[in-house]
Design a protein around this nucleic acid. Structure first.
Length: 285
DNA sequence: ACTGGATCCTGACTGC
DNA sequence: TGCAGTCAGGATCCAG
């Protein structure tokens, strides 16, 4: 659920409360997560340690501790991180609770359990656990030539290409549709077909739209809230996502919905005309 | 090497 | 009111 803007907003909300605090106690729920909860590593490297920094990498929240370990939290589709008074009732789907030295407890709640909590021990490289992630859309290496090079010979629809975190991290189902709409590119277009000009549009609009979404506090479709429990309001600015059958904000035509890689994808057939595979340049390699 | 589909889960909503 | 089916912001694994 949370894409880059939502995770960024959550990080910015967590940082001032968490930084400098010591984690006194950690409690785990009984339910199994997608990845096993880090009970042992927590006892060794988290409990009793002070929080040094809170940062984001891709859609992960990273909490660095003075033990030189890092807490790695992924919110999946329905994950939340919120503060509660330590003595308040535990909610259904609260899977991890970190008690701080100021009487507050940070709680990780995740209905669908697609999220994960991991601990990277001292000396372990975060990237080793996170995997071979591509650049963040705000990094200088996220450029049109970079994308043009990676997309050579790739027949995947450009929307799926942008959602592949080995290509670029943080762009999920909502923002992929929005970025392609603003760029005037049909989401079904095979990645290899895009021109340098297309990639320049995608790079520029990615930065633009994600920046705007962060400023709006993210997008709340059903249940996303930031660390203070507040909803975002970028959903009021979505131009195509979730608007099948409505009028295109640019041309007034009807917004269409297709399924790509099993995910709902929204676009304007007039502003984002299909490009015919018959005209594809021959694949390289 | 790529690509599409299934899969992990719960809950909200739709239509019969 | 109930029940079956569909759909959700993600990411990984597997077969073809």
């Amino acid at each position: 659920m949370p894409e880059l803007p939502e995770v960024e907003v959550i990080c910015r909300g967590l940082a001032p409360v968490l930084t400098g605090r010591t984690i006194i106690k950690v409690s785990f729920g009984a339910q199994k997560m997608r990845l096993p909860l880090p009970v042992e590593a927590t006892a060794r490297w988290v409990t009793g340690h002070k929080i040094v920094t809170v940062r984001r990498r891709a859609k992960y929240v990273l909490v660095d501790l003075d033990s030189s370990a890092t807490l790695l939290i992924h919110l999946g589709m329905t994950g939340r991180l919120n503060f509660f008074p330590a003595d308040s009732a535990v909610a259904k789907h609260d899977h991890v609770r970190w008690l701080l030295d100021n009487g507050l407890e940070l709680r990780f709640n995740d209905t669908r359990r697609f999220g994960s909590v991991q601990v990277i021990g001292p000396g372990q490289e975060p990237e080793a656990i996170i995997g071979a992630l591509g650049p963040d859309p705000f990094w200088p290496e996220f450029t049109a030539p970079y994308l043009a090079d990676l997309s050579k010979g790739r027949q995947v629809p450009v929307k799926n290409f942008l959602m592949d975190n080995r290509v670029v991290t943080g762009i999920g189902n909502i923002y992929a549709s929005e970025i392609l709409f603003t760029s005037g590119i049909n989401p079904t277009t095979p990645a290899a077909v895009l021109t340098p000009r297309d990639w320049r549009e995608i790079v520029a609009n990615s930065k633009l739209i994600l920046t705007e979404a962060i400023a709006c506090g993210g997008t709340t479709i059903a249940d996303y809230v930031n660390s203070r429990g507040e909803k975002g309001y970028f959903q009021t600015r979505l131009r195509v996502y979730g608007r099948a059958g409505e009028s295109c904000p640019t041309c007034g035509g009807k917004i269409d919905k297709v399924s790509l890689g099993g995910r709902a994808s929204f676009y304007c057939p007039a502003c984002q005309p299909a490009r015919h595979p018959g005209r594809l340049p021959k694949m390289k390699r």
